[in-house]
Design a protein around this nucleic acid. Structure first.
Lengths: 353, 353
DNA sequence: AGCAGAAATGGGAACGTTCCCAAATAGTCT
DNA sequence: AGACTATTTGGGAACGTTCCCATTTCTGCT
C-alpha cells in the first residue's frame, strides 16, 4: 500500500508534511516525548509507517549528540588465533547474537572493533574509533576489560562503559559471572563424587579472575573438604606449560584424583598428559574445565565444564549502556548465572591406590 | 607532546586554525586530493597529528554522502544455532577478522546485521538498516546472497553490493571460491587413492552451489574415473536425513568406498552411520567434507575437508566495495583459492570385497 | 613584462536531525 | 469572564563535514 518509487530518501520533513505538523513534532514522536497529543501522535505514526520513514543515524548524531551506536572492543590477536588455530570458539557468535538482539530492540546498532593488546597501541586505537564513531557506549571484553587505561580514556570522554568479566573499575558498568561461585560449584561437584585430593590448575596470575577462583577453591576445600587439602599449581593458560606442570603433578607420589583447570586449552593438556601416563579420564582422573569452547564437546572424553553466559552478558551490557542514555554516571554490577555443564570427564575417584 | 586537556572534541576547524589554512584545505588533505601543495599538505598533516584529529564519520556522511560504513548481512538463525548447538563455527570470527582488517586500512568500519531468512522479513529489515545507517556498501552472505529481492533492493537504492558464495546477480560484485574446482579436487584426490565407487552426498538443491559441485563431481568421475560411475544421493544438509540416506547407501550390495559430503553436519552423520554398521573410517570408507568447521578437527577421525577462504572472501568484498567508492556500477567476480585440508578420513580403498 | 591558463585555496550552502526558546493553545482557578 | 499557568507546537540555530563555485596564486609562453 502507498508504495511509490520514492524520489530520494525520506526525511523527517517529508513525514511532517504528510502529517501536517512541524518537523519538531515528528521528532518528538520518534523520541517518545510525552508532550504530543495522542491524536497528533497517531497521525504522525501513520505517516511514518506509510512513508517507511527511518531516521538517519548520522543526522541524529549531528543534531542531538547521540549516535545510537554501541562499540564492542575485542582482542584482535585472540580473534585471529581462534580461527587460525581452528580451535573453534563461539565467543564472537555469542557476542554478535546477544548484542545485536539487545540493541535492535532499542533502535541501536552494535559494531565491533578489533584492537591489539600491545601496550600503547590499544588506547590510541580506541581513541581513534571514539573520535570517528562517537559511540554512546563501549563494551570492553577481556583482556581489554582489565585495562585501566582504556577505562580512564572512556571516563575522560564521558562515554558510558561496560566491562565484561571484570569488576575493578570505577565509572563502569560491570557485567560478569560469579567466578568464585563457579569455582565453588566445580569443587563441590568433585567433593560430592568422593574426591579428596583435588588440584586447581591456575592460569596466569595476570588474569584477575584467577585469584577469585583459586580463593574460592581453597575456601571450599577447607570448609567442605573434610580436612583434605587442595593443591594449587600454576600454568599460563597455554598447552605447553600446563602439560609440564601437570606431568609433574601426576607423577608425584600422592597424585590428585581430580583437576579443575582454568581454561580449555590447559584441559586439553591434562587430557594429553593423562593419556601419555596411561591414566584414564575419568576412571583415574576427573577433570572440570572453565570456558567451554565448542572443542570440549569433541574431545575424548567430552569435558564437564563451567559455561560462561557470554551472549547474556553482552546483551545485559548493551541494555545497561542504552538505559543510561549517556546521562548519569555509569554504575552497576550485574552477575549473570553460569552453568556447570556435565559431560563425561568426571566420575567417582578410583579405589584408594 | 602537545598533550593538553582538549576542551571538547577536535574539529576540522581546529586543525585549519592550527595549520593556518581553510577548513576546505584540511578536508582536501584528509581526502587525499592531489591539488594541495606539498608544503601545505605537510603543515596540515602535522596539525592533524598534533591535535589527534580524526574526522567525525557522521559529519562526513552528512556533508559528503559517504558513510565509510560497510554492512555485512548474516543469517540470524544460523548464528544463533551455531552457538546454541555448540557446534562451533568460526565463520563469524573469520568475517570479523577479514572484514575489519580490510576496512581499517581504508578508514572504513564494518558492522553486522543479523537478519532472519523468513520470507518477507529480510527485505524490510535490510531496508530499515539501509535507511538508518546509509552504508556505502553491503555484503550479503549465504543464504542471503542468493536472495534476489535483497540484491534488487540494493540496486534500487544505488548501494554497492557484494555477494559471498554466489554469482547469479547483476549489479553485484561476487566473491566466491571455485566450487566446481573444489569438487573436482576432492574427487580426484579419492580417485588418486584408488577409489572407483564414490558417492556424492548432496545437500538441499535450493542451495545454488550444490549443482555446481555435483556437476563437477559427475564430470570428473566421467573423465578421470576410468569408466566407473559416481553415485549421487541427496540429503538436506541436516544430520537426520543424511543418516537415513547414507544408511541405505552403505547397506546396498555395491556400497561406495568413499563419500564426498557437502557439509560437515552430514559428514558427522556419515561417521555415525559407518560406526553403527561396523565400518571403519578410513579403513573401509573414505570421507571428504565440505565446509571445515572447527568440529571436524576433533571428530574421530579428524576429517579431510575443503576449506572455504572466508576471511579472505570478506576482505576481498570489502576491498572491492571500498574501491568503487559508491561510484560506478558494481562489477567483478573474484574467485579465491580454497584448500583441501588433508586429515585422517581418507585412505586407499579396502581390497575388493 | 604581460597575459592566458592552470593550479591552489577559500567561503557560502547544504546534508537531516535535535536543541533551545518563543509562540499558540488548552486548562484551571477565582 | 479574566487572568494565569501548563501543555502542546513551531521556527531558527547548530552540529562537522563535503560540495560547488569564486577567487587568488602560480606557471609558462610570447
Amino acid at each position: 500500500m502507498g508504495e511509490r518509487p520514492t524520489a530520494g530518501p525520506v526525511t523527517i520533513e517529508d513525514v511532517a508534511r504528510a502529517a501536517g505538523v512541524s518537523r519538531q513534532t515528528v521528532s518528538r514522536v520518534i523520541n517518545r516525548s510525552p508532550s504530543v497529543k495522542p491524536a497528533v501522535r497517531a497521525r504522525v505514526a501513520a505517516a511514518i509507517e506509510e512513508l517507511h520513514y527511518v531516521p538517519n543515524l548520522s543526522a541524529r548524531r549531528m543534531g542531538g549528540g547521540r549516535s545510537y551506536l554501541i562499540l564492542a572492543v575485542n582482542d584482535r590477536g585472540r580473534t585471529l588465533e581462534n580461527w587460525q588455530a581452528g580451535r573453534g570458539n563461539d565467543w564472537v557468535d555469542q557476542m554478535l547474537y546477544g548484542g545485536m538482539t539487545a540493541c535492535e530492540a532499542h533502535g541501536y546498532h552494535m559494531l565491533f572493533e578489533l584492537i591489539d593488546t600491545s601496550p600503547g597501541i590499544a588506547p590510541r586505537k580506541l581513541a581513534d574509533a571514539l573520535s570517528a564513531l562517537r559511540p554512546d557506549g563501549v563494551i570492553l571484553t577481556p583482556p581489554h576489560s582489565e585495562n585501566a587505561e582504556l577505562v580512564a580514556l572512556l571516563a575522560d570522554r564521558r562515554i558510558a562503559c561496560a566491562t565484561i568479566g571484570s569488576r575493578d573499575h570505577q565509572h563502569c558498568v560491570s557485567v560478569r559471572m560469579d567466578e568464585a561461585g563457579a569455582a565453588q560449584e566445580a569443587t563441590r561437584h568433585l567433593l560430592g563424587l568422593g574426591h579428596r585430593r583435588i588440584a586447581f590448575l591456575a592460569g596466569s596470575s595476570a588474569y584477575g579472575n584467577s585469584a577469585l577462583r583459586r580463593d574460592a577453591f581453597d575456601a571450599t576445600m577447607a570448609s567442605d573438604g573434610g580436612g583434605s587439602g587442595g593443591i594449587v599449581v600454576r600454568g599460563d593458560f597455554k598447552f605447553e606449560r600446563a602439560a609440564d606442570v601437570v606431568g609433574d603433578l601426576l607423577q608425584a607420589n600422592d597424585r590428585p584424583t581430580a583437576i579443575i583447570s582454568e581454561n580449555d586449552e590447559m584441559s586439553f593438556a591434562v587430557l594429553h598428559v593423562a593419556n601419555r601416563l596411561g591414566l584414564s579420564v575419568p576412571g583415574d582422573l576427573s577433570l572440570i574445565s572453565f570456558e567451554d569452547t565448542p572443542g570440549v564437546r569433541f574431545s575424548v572424553p567430552p569435558l564437564t565444564a563451567i559455561r560462561q553466559p557470554t551472549a547474556a552478558m553482552i546483551g545485559q551490557a548493551c541494555e545497561a549502556l542504552i538505559a543510561m542514555r549517556g546521562g548519569e554516571d555509569a554504575q552497576g554490577d550485574y552477575v549473570l548465572p553460569h552453568q556447570l555443564v556435565l559431560r563425561s570427564s568426571t566420575a567417582r575417584p578410583p579405589r584408594s591406590p
